[in-house]
């Protein structure tokens, strides 16, 4: 068996390196609509990459299909822009086989909460070490205005022209209800500093960090978050020394709820909402939950060692 040995020739030992600026992490010019909340999320993510000085070749962004899923194309890292709803299985396969990579999964509400729901639920349970960002604009934007699972009841769209028939799915309570859940936070595109701090906390969490970003779609759901943007009173900020600390947001929002992110029961209660206000902050964090990528990690063997092992297998079947 070989231990965690490396050679001086390994890419990450002998690679050139210098301090990387935000521009070094930027790729193509984003083609989202002006005013789209995805711009803000991208900015915060680039800031995170810069502040952590993540190696670009060691970072992978996976996405599904939708406006939000163009995200990887705007970053100078590796990326996998795959199928609608299926960012998480790909991200899981990457992290399980390459624990040295930093893995991010970017999803929209259709991706995560509708067509890819099974993967979402199980990814939370696997608790594979990665950041999963849900850019939730409450609508299908790329395909032009169809109701999504998180569309507010009564909101009119091209597919439900009399207004959405059902109450919206709550991604926070859903995630908090899943066994082995280890990190759940909510932030919003219009508070970039809070968004950055949330991503930072998610990145440093060991395990599956689920971040829901309330994201404005200026074209189809312009009004949905308007109350929260215009009237800070409609936002409640979860604060705690162990939570997400952002002086900007703390200054802007007067409604503070002191919430210890270790308290799952209270996190679920707060995630329910119910008073019409948007709650931002860290709902839950438990870094002690088992991580599937570590549970399944195995030592590596050389070709010759494998042959020896396989020959022993063949002995069992010898006649």
């Amino acid at each position: 068996m070989s231990g965690p040995e490396y050679s001086l020739l390994d890419g990450d030992v002998c690679a050139d390196e210098r301090h990387l600026a935000i521009e070094d992490y930027s790729s193509a010019v984003p083609r989202w609509c002006p005013g789209c909340g995805d711009h803000s999320a991208l900015g915060a993510m680039q800031r995170l990459l810069e502040s952590e000085q993540l190696k670009r070749e060691k970072t992978v962004f996976c996405s599904g299909i939708g406006c939000s899923s163009r995200f990887p194309h705007y970053l100078k890292t590796y990326g996998f822009h795959g199928l609608h709803g299926r960012a998480l299985p790909v991200a899981t396969g990457i992290k399980m086989t390459r624990p040295d990579l930093h893995v991010f999964a970017i999803m929209g509400d259709g991706d995560c909460c509708s067509i890819g729901l099974a993967h979402w639920l199980h990814a939370v349970r696997y608790n594979v070490d990665m950041v999963a960002m849900l850019l939730d604009n409450n609508i299908y934007g790329l395909t032009k205005n169809q109701t999504s699972p998180t569309t507010p009841q009564g909101h009119k769209s091209n597919t439900q022209q009399q207004g959405s028939f059902l109450p919206p799915l709550n991604p926070l309570t859903a995630t908090l209800g899943i066994t082995n859940c280890s990190f759940v936070a909510q932030t919003a595109d219009w508070v970039p500093a809070h968004l950055f701090q949330t991503l930072k906390a998610a990145f440093h969490h060991q395990g599956f960090a689920f971040v829901r970003v309330l994201q404005r779609c200026p074209v189809f759901t312009a009004g949905i978050y308007q109350d929260a943007v215009r009237h800070p009173d409609n936002v409640e900020l979860l604060t705690h020394p162990a939570g997400i600390c952002d002086p900007d947001a703390e200054g802007l929002y007067k409604n503070h709820i002191s919430h210890d992110p270790a308290d799952l029961h209270e996190a679920r209660r707060l995630a329910e909402g119910g008073n019409g206000k948007f709650r931002l902050g860290l709902f839950f964090r438990d870094a002690s939950r088992p991580r599937y990528n570590e549970t399944r990690a195995l030592p590596k063997y050389t070709a010759e060692e494998k042959i020896e092992i396989l020959n022993a297998e063949l002995d069992r079947y010898a006649v």
Partner: peptide, 23 residues
């Protein structure tokens, strides 16, 4: 050193395998 990952469904099994190959 090999891992058999029992995925949540057939689709995810293909997706995980593709992720691993991409990596």
């Amino acid at each position: 050193g090999g891992v058999v990952h029992q995925a949540e469904d057939e689709i995810a099994a293909a997706g995980c395998a593709i992720g691993a190959s991409f990596a």
